[in-house]
Write a protein that binds this DNA or RNA. Sequence first.
DNA 1: GAAAGTGTATTAATTATATAATACAGTTAA
DNA 2: TTAACTGTATTATATAATTAATACACTTTC
Lengths: 123, 123
Amino acid sequence: MISFDDFILQDDSPIYLQIIQYVKRGIVSGAIENGEEMISRRALSALLGVNPNTIQKAYHMLEEEGIIYSRTGAKSCVEVDEAMKESIRRTLLSQDTLKWVQSMKQMGVSMEEALELCREVWE
Amino acid sequence: MISFDDFILQDDSPIYLQIIQYVKRGIVSGAIENGEEMISRRALSALLGVNPNTIQKAYHMLEEEGIIYSRTGAKSCVEVDEAMKESIRRTLLSQDTLKWVQSMKQMGVSMEEALELCREVWE
DNA sequence: GAAAGTGTATTAATTATATAATACAGTTAA
DNA sequence: TTAACTGTATTATATAATTAATACACTTTC
């Protein structure tokens, strides 16, 4: 079951978006597999100290994207085939990297400097 | 004068934060220098098609951070010494890079893969 | 000096995000 | 079967972000 054990609020973007992001990144890394049960909305709400409606918003959007499947009374499940996985992977990797590269360029940082920065921060 | 010619809305984060970010990155790159005049709040509002109050919020926060100086009736001016420049540079570079690195790690991407991605996206 | 431009302030309305308190119907498990 | 759990829905409230419409005092420029 996807327990959200290592979930942490990262920035000041909406919580429901950070939950969606957590699930998508887990799918890309392989930590979250097809068919896995999600933690229940109420349980995640208690775990994160966040309102149940906020969790519901995230889960509902994940369902609209076709990433999880829900039916009343039972836990929601992850439902992603290989095409979906690859689609999420491509989108996230390029979006995040492009954003960082644009940031570096706007600050006048060269590619070599950026690569070195990456190595330093990676640890 | 700082004209915001190449300013573009990047993401769905608050506009006033993106304006602050634009100015800070310009200072880091050297495109924005100490003593330069800011475009007036009303002119920037018209240029970006954004409410004057949103611009005022950004300018007001830049003033509170000690990055620009304003007086009624005259245009606001950038006021940053070398220590401030270096402080902004360190903060932005590490914050942006750390965020990207964390994203890559959460998706199970190795440092070598991340560096290669960076090279590809850089163009 | 007068007109135009500029920073600042106020009040009101709207949308998005998040919280709060319930309620109901379906599933799971003892 | 029954109790606990789960997904779903509703109504209300609060705060942040944005827009809108003015107004006033000060500076710059002609």
